[in-house]
């Protein structure tokens, strides 16, 4: 029982990292109806930015983290300005956004490989890796930190979306882009800001992931997990993405702990397909009927 609780905490901790990335996926999807495949790579590049900053002598770790987050936000914005906006504006099918994102993802992953090599880099940690003993349940401090930070950030995100004027604009664009434009919402600005937000979240995720494990060029594949999480939750739904992410984190750790770590991905992918078969639009997704 104690082991199960321990594993569930690890699961929630990895799930909270997924949630940071998945909510960015969901935000972008809700606005533009496409899966931003390059999002995982934004997360990876954020981690590398942070890593590079830590190499500067006397740089406080917290500042390095901010640099990492800012770097990721900028790269995310760059993707939007360089590629996605142009594709939207030249009237290409929506699918091209996804292909461009796939191209960007391949580019960044291999660029990182060329610049930094495929070796693992270690990010310094805020605490020494210690485990707390709570009634015989061992909990890693990094795990706890992950959960707390993600929780705070995600609550802030939900508040922004649901309580602020900007959030209202985001929701308006998600509902009906053209109508929102007529009503005076500056769509491109809203979209750009959402990319910045999503990028910052991804950067934060990259840094926490890098502290928990390592930084390496293919770590963007964690974005794949986040993508799965947002599909489970229902594409375009931020709360759905968060629930899906925690669920996926829990399933992964429980499967690795009790069944086999080799089968972890097999089971999470099978589960994904199963969920889609039962609820074709994810747990929180809305099934839209196309108007003829």
């Amino acid at each position: 029982m104690k082991i199960l609780i321990q594993q569930m905490i690890t699961g929630i901790s990895i799930g909270s990292v997924y949630a940071l990335i998945a909510s960015g996926y969901a935000l972008v999807y809700s606005l533009l109806d496409f899966s931003n495949w390059a999002h995982g790579e934004v997360c990876m590049l954020g981690a590398y930015c942070c890593f590079m900053a830590t190499l500067v002598p006397k740089m406080p770790l917290s500042v390095s983290c901010l640099i990492g987050i800012g770097g990721a936000a900028l790269i995310s914005l760059f993707n939007e300005k360089l590629a996605y906006r142009r594709i939207r504006n030249n009237g290409s099918p929506n699918m091209f956004l996804m292909i461009a994102a796939m191209g960007l993802s391949t580019t960044y992953q291999n660029l990182a490989n060329v610049i930094w090599g495929s070796k693992f880099k270690q990010l310094p940690r805020f605490f020494k890796t210690t485990t707390l003993n709570i009634n015989g349940i061992f909990v890693g401090t990094t795990d706890l930190l992950c959960i707390v930070i993600s929780l705070i950030v995600l609550v802030i995100l939900l508040l922004i979306i649901n309580q602020t004027r900007f959030g209202l604009h985001v929701r308006a664009v998600a509902c009906a882009g053209r109508t929102a434009r007529i009503m005076g919402v500056r769509i491109d600005q809203v979209i750009a800001l959402v990319f910045v937000m999503a990028g910052a979240l991804a950067g934060l995720a990259g840094i926490t992931y890098g502290m928990k494990y390592n930084v390496y060029p293919t770590m963007g594949n964690v974005g794949l997990k986040a993508f799965i999480a947002s599909v489970i939750g229902g594409l375009g739904s931020v709360p759905g993405a968060i629930v899906g992410a925690v669920l996926l984190g829990l399933i992964e750790t429980v499967v690795s702990g009790y069944i086999s770590s080799g089968l972890r991905d097999l089971i999470s992918f099978s589960l994904l397909i199963l969920i889609l078969l039962i609820r074709p639009s994810g747990l929180f997704g809305v099934d839209v009927q196309e108007k003829a």
Binding site: I87, S92, F96, I99, G103, T106, T107, N110, L111
Partner: peptide
């Protein structure tokens, strides 16, 4: 050869932007 996949990634982005 290590630039191979990098080049493809860039090529895909360019193709989609310039000659979809």
């Amino acid at each position: 050869s290590e630039y191979r996949m990098l080049a493809y990634g860039i090529a895909v982005v360019l193709v989609i932007l310039l000659r979809p």
